[in-house]
């Protein structure tokens, strides 16, 4: 067992963990934060993307034991964050989700795209989204939602 202290969604957590545990399983199984979804479990599908110190990372290929001292934000923890509120509204209005399985990862990725890029055309948004797989929407709605939030940011 190894000791892990980190902040998850603003809450301080200190616990003993099995060192082979990945961050996604730690969040889901130990903290019951089931909003982080596991698709491929080898870093290819993006469903498990969460924010570590404000930056998107893959929680399925990040060892939980490597997360000592960091701050993790999952889909349960965005609360009334302004940009995330706008993204959630844009996702709803642009039909950017259907089954919702990829959505936690899509939101974390979209949050990063809108925060980092002051302008991006459709191709750039699609390239930046390439690490997140959605099997329902065909991406059009997701791309529109992100375009809209980038435009709102510059308004």
């Amino acid at each position: 067992m190894t000791t892990l202290s980190l902040t998850v969604n603003g809450r301080q957590v200190s616990t003993e963990i099995d060192p082979r545990l990945n961050l996604a399983d730690f969040l889901r199984e130990r903290l019951s934060l089931k909003g982080t979804h596991l698709g491929c479990e080898h870093g290819a599908c993006g469903a498990c993307t969460v924010l570590m110190d404000g930056m998107p990372i893959r929680s399925c290929i990040t060892m939980a034991a490597s997360c000592d001292g960091v701050e993790i934000t999952t889909v349960e923890g965005y609360d009334d964050n302004k940009l995330m509120s706008r993204l959630r509204r844009a996702f709803r209005e642009e039909h950017a989700l259907q089954c919702g399985y990829c959505t936690p990862g899509m939101l974390a990725t979209a949050y990063d795209i809108v925060s980092r890029l002051d302008r991006a055309d459709e191709n750039e948004i699609r390239a930046a989204l390439a690490g997140c797989v959605c099997r329902c929407t065909g991406y059009r709605g997701i791309v529109r939602a992100i375009e809209r939030c980038i435009a709102e940011k510059n308004a």
Partner: peptide, 25 residues
């Protein structure tokens, strides 16, 4: 173990092996 973006999936898929990981992060 550095960023683990290759090593961790390879450990998950059991194509890489380690009894001990030394995380240099």
């Amino acid at each position: 173990l550095a960023g683990g973006q290759s090593l961790v999936p390879m450990l998950n898929l059991r194509v890489a092996f380690a009894e001990t990981l030394v995380d240099i992060g």
